[in-house]
Amino acid sequence: MKKYEAVVIGVSAGGLVALKSLLSMLPNNLSFPIIIVQHLYYNIKDDFSDLLKGGSLLKIKQADDKEKINSGCVYIAPSNYHLLIEDDKTFSLSIDEMVNFARPSIDVLFESASDAYGACLIGIILTGANNDGSMGLKKIKDRGGLAVVQDPNTAEYSSMPLAAISATEVDHILPLEDIARLIIRLSCNNTKLQS
């Protein structure tokens, strides 16, 4: 058994419903942080994390520049910024050009997270109507991390899960409920390994 240190999630069209559902199934004592890029429309000023708070026990917040990443917390990328992870497990933001027509881009988060966490990272691609995240998920998998994709048949928009599945040999293709179960199981494994 391996100790996982973080979960990164990439999600686009259909994301609000999927994330609300996924987060409502998770307990508030996860042994790792969950870091999410949700594609948003340009110039949305509202804090997307506010929309997710209802129905979840987890601490959900927008990621701040140079903030220390804590276990059990859910972090959402702010709109119109890329979200990156430094080796010392803090966040950095950037306004670099869009990647895959997106800012925040899933690939940018996943690739930098893979550098920071190596094999101890879980990458998850959920519903979406483009192909952002598939390169990032491939990198996570190549470095020994765990690659998980929402079952395209259960996703509101299937093209992003399908792109991820065709880009890399993923470990699990699951509906949301089973992704939640998997996250809980891996989090419990961590706790067992620590004790």
Binding site: L84, I85, S112
Partner: peptide, 9 residues
């Protein structure tokens, strides 16, 4: 500089 962005560039 923050390394993650620099690394990408």
């Amino acid at each position: 500089y923050s390394r993650a962005s620099l690394n990408r560039r």
